[in-house]
Design a protein around this nucleic acid. Structure first.
Lengths: 297, 297
DNA sequence: ATATCTCGATGTCCCGTAGCTCCACCGTGG
DNA sequence: CCACGGTGGAGCTACGGGACATCGAGATAT
């Protein structure tokens, strides 16, 4: 059995669906079936129970998954460490953020790199469904979240920047003729949201109701910001963002309307309290030294 | 990188010799070279320093070896456990012994299997260079050694059998005409020995000198008992064994001469005190129930 | 109850490449 | 100058993987 097979087995054990597993690994469903079949021949017992409607792990399969998962992860890490060492990097800090937040933070990355050349910052894409889950699962070490964040197991670090809001609308949208927008108009047009599963935090980004009590309808459940801005471009939704997205997306068909009555967003570094380490402290220190950037232009 | 590559890397890291690595893995030396080269390209730094006379690990390579070794072992174990589970076996006890000891122990294996059908005994070949090393490294859980064994980290369990000695000689050897042999004659002909690196234990098998003080010359350093008996057949050496080997090797060209003045050998189960477990205790109990077999015929 | 549809796993045939061998070459220490 | 041992290159083959057809079983409809 080769590593590729292990990867397929673990992915299937997670997805419990041959087709989706194939998609995520960029191979055909038939291949998944072949590989699993071969593994079962090798092990000598079925690893999955397949009915035409559902795939379930057998007892043997469950046990194997539990055994192999940490080992597989450890393996990837070992290779990663070796590759870092070959570049003279002794450790790596993975920062999760929404991609449009990246550009505004050049000063931070540069300062950190200058102060700690032996460490490396990797920026990873956070998605709009349970980003705290990604943080808690260890997919990244630090997460750049808007405030407020109040989670017992997470530490809220320094605030990196505060940014007023703009409403993005398609250029042929009824609102596009205006020069600014109020929260109130969001009662008239659907907006987007991720599946955050954390109401107070979603509300920190955008309230569920206007001041006059009208519901702000979440029309599109998006996984990534790209989907949102695309839907804005198509005129399906309108969407408030921190204003610095205008630098990130200077798309021809999009208008940015200031939203003076929506409070500016503050973004801060968040991390799991129990896995705080030197790298995280160093990044936080660098951030504190730079102070909170005020992006108001 | 696939598991096969890891295996090659680890084997080379142990052997530090491309040719021997290739032999042990049954591939061509060129293949080893190609694979290592590819790994170095992937990692981004040399893993081995090659001079025309020696191969050494680099710092990165050493680190990678230390990281990967336990992980690789873990993989193999996980798969092994799954395969056992598929046969309804929940654990496995690996017993190391010299192959010619195996046949006399049928009653023990059978009794153990009857008492504990959910456990499996695997017999592994112990070699004549540092067998205690194999035990300590975990290549097997229990080792069948002749006595005395006095090692601080090892437990000496029940004695399985006691067996008088025979001297094996080729049928055309000068000694073959006799009906028995004394230790004294070993001063005249070379014998074999492993590289045991443990004098008191080697001496337990065969003294270094005859009673009259003549040296018993170790003519052949053998890794396995097969090599010894082959050399005996060729007339190069003579060799004392416990007498039950006569059942194991009933080779036409070999004579077995009783050695009344060499003390019978006792074989006992030995294990690492700190890794004693239920299986080991169960095997020891079964052995005690059977009592010490007296193989004197 | 039967027929039809749809979803999702799997068998089969086929292709391209990765894994491997063979052989020639070359650097270095005895 | 030889011999040992690592490496480059050409070539073969088996295996990883895709395309497509098929099949079993819920779901839906008449």
């Amino acid at each position: 059995m080769e590593l590729r097979d292990i990867e397929i087995f673990l992915m299937l054990a997670e997805e419990l669906h041959f087709g989706r597993t194939a998609e995520r690994l960029y191979v055909s469903p038939a291949r998944i079936s072949q590989v699993i079949k071969a593994q079962e021949r090798f092990i000598g017992a079925p690893l999955f129970e397949r009915t035409s409607r559902a795939v379930r792990l057998t007892e043997v399969g469950r046990r194997l998954r539990d055994d192999l998962r940490p080992i597989h992860a450890g393996f990837q890490e070992s290779l990663e460490r070796a590759r870092m060492a070959s570049r003279g990097v002794s450790a790596r800090l993975r920062v999760g953020l929404m991609p449009f937040n990246f550009s505004g933070l050049w000063p931070l990355w540069k300062a950190f790199q200058r102060q700690h050349p032996q460490w490396e910052v990797q920026v990873r894409l956070a998605h709009f469904q349970e980003p705290f889950g990604q943080l808690r699962r260890g997919e990244f070490d630090v997460f750049l979240a808007w405030l407020p964040v109040e989670e017992p197991d997470l530490t809220v670090g320094p605030t990196l920047f505060t940014d007023p809001r703009v409403l993005t609308v398609a250029e042929d949208h009824p609102l596009a003729v205006r020069t600014s927008a109020t929260v109130e108009v969001l009662g008239d047009f659907p907006v987007s949201a991720g599946e955050l599963k954390l109401d107070y935090w979603e509300e920190g980004y955008l309230p569920f109701q206007t001041r006059r009590g009208r519901t702000i309808e979440r029309g599109l459940r998006a996984r990534h910001a790209d989907e949102m801005i695309t839907a804005v471009g198509m005129g399906e939704i309108v969407m408030p963002f921190p204003s610095h997205v205008a630098e990130y997306w200077n798309l021809p068909g999009i208008r940015y309307l200031p939203m003076p009555d929506l409070a500016p967003l503050s973004y801060a570094l968040i991390w799991r309290t129990e896995s705080e380490n030197d790298l995280i402290r160093a990044l936080a220190a660098t951030a504190r030294d730079l102070g909170t950037l005020n992006l108001q232009t």
